[in-house]
Write a protein that binds this DNA or RNA. Structure first.
Lengths: 181, 181
DNA sequence: AGGTACATGTAAGCTGTTACATGATTTT
DNA sequence: AAAATCATGTAACAGCTTACATGTACCT
């Protein structure tokens, strides 16, 4: 699942520009799968074009660079199908928040609390965004599965942090004392 | 949170070899945070040694390369504290499983079912492993928070897949028909 | 006046992955 | 007999991130 495949995937749903592909991974139906930057997307699109897997249509715009809308070609569609038939890669995560929590005993309670609260806020914002998306564009069964999956995960995280917040904060305020007494 | 910081973090808990550091991210207390490969760890350890952030003790062994056990130096401990005071990075995920599920309509039901079942099995194995770890070595409040967090996530995933499995399979077996009738 | 959204692209640098190299011991 | 565990390390390659380069239009 490299950036090229990710672009093919978005384009299989609808034609899009590089800018719009990025949005699909931020807000759209491909959120929860991964993030991708412009620095990956534009070169990937150029490579796909070179390989004949996508075609492009240019639209002139005032005061902006021309908008380049890409479409899958039939070889592009086949390349996507091939990629989908490769063995599934293991998921990759890198979670800095959990890393900090492992060293919560070295943080001051106020910083710790601020970290947890801002994470809960972020999570709740994401949850609201997904719920809104579910109403606006239903999508097919796969889309619904993925969005529901993301929703379940974010809710679990927010709830977990809320429920264990004071346990961590308590341990931080009363380092060894609580056990001894 | 680069590999160097990750190594410092493990060493702050106890002295360890490169091999043992890797295990800490596979099975040990640092699971759920990220995976790291030997190809990242050994060069990171060499760099940390060059910067005086860790020291090393060699133990001769028969039939194996010498075991090199690294320890944090006081500058290493400070470097870790500095890293912990930097702003938290956003989490990174790349989930190939969800990506496949988005295109479940292109998969045969048997392949789709096999994908979901094997994912559930993997998840249950991980859950069992964490629960065992929770009993064996309790750890401090931060450790417990992180392990509980991981546990909650894996359980949510397994449950979600189980509960929505037949919805996806059903959509795959009866493409448009079900809606029309 | 400043921030955000729109819109594309390049280049250097940093990081991580994978394959290679070597090999004994223990478990299944 | 095969696979996993123990044990370290290098080198090439692939990939991603970040900074740079450019500029308008709208909203607060």
């Amino acid at each position: 699942m490299d950036t090229k495949t990710l672009c093919l995937a978005v384009l299989s749903r609808s034609d899009a520009s590089g800018y719009e592909i990025k949005k699909a991974f931020e807000d759209g139906p491909f959120a929860h799968i991964t993030e991708v930057g412009f620095g990956s997307i534009y070169p990937a699109l150029a490579a796909l074009l070179g390989d004949g897997l996508v075609s492009v249509a240019k639209f002139e715009q005032e005061g902006r660079p021309d908008k380049k809308v890409y479409s899958l070609t039939s070889s592009g569609r086949m390349a996507l199908l091939d990629a989908l038939n490769e063995p599934t890669e293991p998921d990759k995560v890198r979670c800095d928040f959990l890393f900090r929590m492992m060293f919560s005993s070295l943080l001051t309670p106020s910083i710790l609390e601020e970290m947890m609260d801002s994470r809960i806020d972020q999570l709740n914002a994401t949850i609201a965004r997904i719920e809104q998306g579910l109403e606006e564009e239903p999508g097919d069964a796969g889309d619904a599965f993925v969005r529901g999956f993301g929703l379940a995960m974010y809710k679990t995280m927010a709830t977990y942090i809320e429920e264990h917040k004071y346990a961590l904060l308590g341990a931080s305020l009363l380092p060894d004392r609580a056990v001894a007494e």
